[in-house]
Computed example of a mutant assay.
Amino acid sequence: MSKYSIEEFLKQTEQEDKGQGLFELETPRMLEVNLEGQVWAKAGSMISYNGNIKFEREGLFEHGLGKTFKKAFTGEGASLMKATGNGKLYLADEGKKVIVLDLRNDVIHVNGNDLLAFEPSIKWDIKLMKRIAGMMAGGLFNVRCEGTGMIAITSHYEPLTLRVTPDRPVITDPNATVAWSGNLQPEFQTDITLKTFFGRGSGESIQMRFEGDGFVVVQPYEEVYFKSNS
């Protein structure tokens, strides 16, 4: 059989059940959700499904008035959709690498643009980083995920996890920061000496500084967000 035949192509790419549970990495850049009930996913991330699944846009007051107000300031990047039913759901986001995390009474902060899906058992809240909202296009927000259950996050290319210790703080570019442990509270600083190296509208390099004991996940890519005019 030719290695380029249709049969060989199907053999190499056909969906297969790996028995990994609710969230399954079908490929490094595609998440399979073995749905039996409900899951939250990033709006627009569905690429295929089978079975009896109903999709709903997140209701205006579904998660309370406070989150609705915060969402109005963060734009469409935080929009969620609810998938309910039984079947197989396939999610992806611009070809980014998918990372599945099984939280066990853990807390993690995820960049709002990098949260792909999570179980309903996960408690979440949108956190707008107000101090830099006026410095960066569209500001920057993250989602605090807490509890027990599965979440899926995304990264442009392979992520790198950096340990933060009391004697070794970590400084990152906000646009390259994917997630960080729940006990860390980043501070923001600017470095005017770096302004000639950055094509930013502010003319300054805005950085996130993490101090304490935990970890930060970064990606080898700067994700730039643009404020919607709508």
Rank of each mutant, 00 (worst) to 15 (best):
V178T: 10
S202M: 03
R57L: 14
E56F: 06
E36N: 11
T172K: 09
P28Y: 03
G19C: 05
L25K: 02
M150R: 11
E62Y: 05
K67H: 12
H63E: 09
I126T: 06
V98R: 00
E58R: 12
D167K: 11
E187T: 14
M30A: 08
P159D: 09
F141V: 10
G37K: 13
S79W: 07
P169R: 08
P166H: 07
W40Q: 10
S230K: 15
E36L: 08
K54Y: 03
D173H: 00
R57I: 12
W180P: 01
I153Q: 00
I122L: 06
A78T: 13
I132P: 01
E58A: 09
S5F: 07
I47W: 09
G77N: 03
G147K: 00
L89W: 01
F69Y: 10
P120E: 07
E204C: 03
E146G: 07
F226L: 15
P186D: 02
E223H: 13
G201M: 09
R144V: 11
K96N: 14
D93C: 09
E56L: 11
L10Q: 09
D173A: 01
T154S: 02
A72L: 15
R57N: 15
A152T: 11
D173L: 04
L25I: 06
G64V: 01
F210V: 06
L65S: 12
V217Y: 02
I122Y: 05
G199V: 12
G77P: 07
W124M: 09
K130A: 14
E32G: 14
A78Q: 10
E7V: 12
K227W: 11
A92F: 01
A137S: 15
F23S: 00
E94C: 14
N50C: 12
T161I: 15
V110D: 00
G21E: 08
I171Y: 02
T154K: 03
L184P: 06
R57F: 10
M135F: 03
K3W: 10
I126G: 04
Q207E: 08
